[in-house]
Simulated scan of single mutants.
Amino acid sequence: MMETDKNKKNLNAPHDKGYKYLLSHKKVFIELLRSFVKKDWVNEIDESKVIRINKSFILQDFKNKEADLVYQVKLENKEVFFYILLELQSKVDFQMPYRLLLYIIEVWREILKDTSLNRQKRKDYKLPAIIPIVLYNGINRWTACLSFKETIDSYELFGENIVDFKYILIDVNRYSEEELLQLSNLIGSVFLLDRRVGREELIERLKKLTDVLKDISEDEFILLKNWFLSIVSRFLPEERKREVREILEGSKGVEFMISNLERTLKEEFIKKSRKEGIKEGLRRGRKEGKIEGKIEGILAVLIEQLKEKFTNVPSEYIEALKKLDDNTLLLVAKDILKIEKIDDLKKYLN
């Protein structure tokens, strides 16, 4: 990974594997091309003539920077190789054309290694075409050069004598929600759910995808469930991860799965919001350094969260909370949020 922080590396590892897992299935790979690569030759791809090469060509120089996939495809009876680089990190890498050139050469070296010398020496022997594709999901717009020659100083002087190629960029975050929903397929849905959005927006997107994904095949449904497990649950606490795993394993259809995921995520977001509210109240109270400040910072949040959790909170309970002294309020605030019945609040008010 490009990130220097070790924790970020560990966090991105399952994320990269999740995408590699999805795109290792040729149906999803072909879906990616047909959805995001607007070239005439894409329509000529026959799924029966697509083979995944089970080998990574990442070099030692760039170890841990990314994941890659290679597919061999027969197009008009000619071998074509698609080299897909999964650039699933937040920063743009301006060395991308150079890295791709090295990977392309590695693929050719592997091909030549498996090709007899007699065949290589034939006048009509030609290296197969390699189409480089970069899949990028960073927040910032991709600003690295798309063609290799642009990375060479004064390339304009030498024209066609300079080595050149142009890679295909799939910049996931540049597609609108409407565009991804209109695709009505697995890869578009995954790109939409993987966006860095707020909690409520994530739940809304899950709802919208119920209709979009209802007709996916059984194989694609299994892929989606496994992707959810490795990606969506990675920020959840252990008990929620177990709950998500049980939901996914027990789901027989998209609607059931999304409905239960929506409920679980909403519960977790509310719980997290309560914790964040108490922390903010404590911070505000300490900053102001007085009882009034703590009441404004903690009590207001506490009352708000109680009202959110319970439909009716008796006014006398609210008044009793306001009368708690500073130290008692600090001690019981977190415990109060754990209560399951509003009547249990009484023991904290005596």
Rank of each mutant, 00 (worst) to 15 (best):
Y21C: 07
Y21I: 01
S24K: 14
S24C: 04
S24N: 12
K26Q: 12
K26L: 05
I30K: 14
E31N: 15
L32E: 11
L33E: 12
R34L: 05
R34M: 07
S35A: 10
F36L: 02
F36Q: 02
V37M: 03
V37W: 04
K39N: 12
W41P: 14
W41K: 05
V42R: 01
N43P: 01
N43G: 11
E44R: 09
D46R: 10
D46S: 14
D46M: 10
D46I: 15
E47T: 14
S48L: 12
K49T: 15
V50H: 04
R52Q: 13
N54I: 05
N54L: 05
K55N: 08
K55A: 09
S56V: 06
I58V: 14
L59G: 07
L59Y: 02
Q60E: 15
D61L: 07
F62Y: 14
F62T: 02
F62E: 13
F62V: 08
F62S: 07
K63I: 14
N64G: 13
A67D: 14
A67K: 14
D68H: 01
L69H: 10
L69S: 08
V70G: 00
L75H: 02
L75S: 05
E76N: 11
K78S: 13
Y83W: 07
I84Q: 03
I84S: 06
L85M: 14
L85W: 04
L85E: 09
L86M: 05
L88I: 14
Q89P: 01
Q89N: 07
S90T: 08
K91T: 03
K91I: 00
F94D: 11
F94K: 10
F94C: 06
M96A: 05
P97Y: 13
P97N: 13
R99Y: 01
R99L: 00
L101Q: 08
L101I: 08
L102Q: 09
Y103V: 01
I105H: 09
I105F: 02
V107I: 15
V107Y: 03
V107D: 06
W108T: 02
R109M: 02
E110K: 05
K113D: 04
K113R: 13
K113P: 00
D114W: 08
S116P: 13
L117S: 12
N118Q: 11
N118T: 09
N118E: 11
R119C: 08
R119Q: 11
R119E: 15
K121E: 10
K121A: 12
